[in-house]
Design a protein around this nucleic acid. Structure first.
Lengths: 150, 150
DNA sequence: TACGATTGTATCGTGTACGATATAAATGTC
DNA sequence: GACATTTATATCGTACACGATACAATCGTA
């Protein structure tokens, strides 16, 4: 019963659908985000800034579970597109404070329809609201535990 | 009720946990796969080859939902590590057939413990077997529908 | 207050991902 | 049987993602 060959079949993997669906969902966002000229990770950065402006790099890193070596170039690209501003903190010269630039703030209005559009496409996937909530719940549990195993 | 500001809170996104957990799970595999000197996508390629040797690039592309422009360099890296062989098909010169090299075949033995190890870590996440199966089921449904929206 | 440890961000190297495009082989059609 | 179309893979450019490492600012402590 243990370590039968079937355990190595793609069909029987639990993590592969996670990996595949994640990329598929990012692709779902792409046409919507292209209109705003941003990528999905950039959209996530804007989300946390719309919720609360002025955040340090490490704060964004913690919220999105992205390393600072991923964020630094990403934020620089967003700065060059004038979506955000990056400035060293006066109190602590090590920190870089990220704030919304006018362009980044303006995008919030254009983005309000995005969550709705995505959820509708999930509904079209004949995925009930209960199932979506169950999925979110399970992923939340996983996220809570896995983030400690770093 | 519609388009309230809360719909744009990170907390209320369904796709973000999908994105974050996917990356976290890949990190779970990393220490296990490092012993075999392979990455997670390379592991997936080996999975489908262990199941059935000799597959074309487009066949692997279809199974893993990865574009050929992603696979080509990935497969070349695997070839240079002598895990697989790449050879033009005699019948159809357009196709490139991928077969396991001895090194790649040998890794199967060392990989048998991986699925078990990962599932155990899910159990430690106080995630019941039912919940895992439910998760797999939901992701499977999503995968089936989203793959058509390309 | 000197100075080693810690913290916050950045740099570097490697490996995915993917859209757009290129190219060669195979196929269909007249 | 030439020739437009399709098919299978590859190339190019851009953007993540992350381990390892660097570096400057701050903190802790003797």
């Amino acid at each position: 019963m243990k370590n039968s060959p079937e355990t190595l079949w793609l069909e029987n993997q639990i993590c592969f659908p996670l990996y595949a669906v994640s990329r598929m969902v990012t692709k779902l966002y792409t046409p919507l985000l292209e209109k705003l000229d941003i990528t999905y990770p950039q959209y996530l950065v804007l989300l946390v800034l719309w919720e609360k402006d002025e955040r340090s790099v490490s704060e964004i890193s913690e919220l999105l579970h992205l390393e600072t070596n991923t964020l630094t170039p990403l934020l620089k690209r967003m700065e060059s597109k004038e979506l955000i501003r990056r400035q060293r903190s006066k109190e602590d010269e090590r920190r870089v404070e990220i704030t919304l630039a006018s362009k980044g703030r303006a995008l919030q209005q254009e983005a309000t329809c995005i969550p709705e559009t995505i959820v509708n496409q999930f509904q079209d996937a004949s995925l009930g609201l209960e199932e979506v909530l169950q999925l979110k719940q399970t992923l939340g549990t996983l996220m809570g535990v896995l983030k400690d195993s770093d």
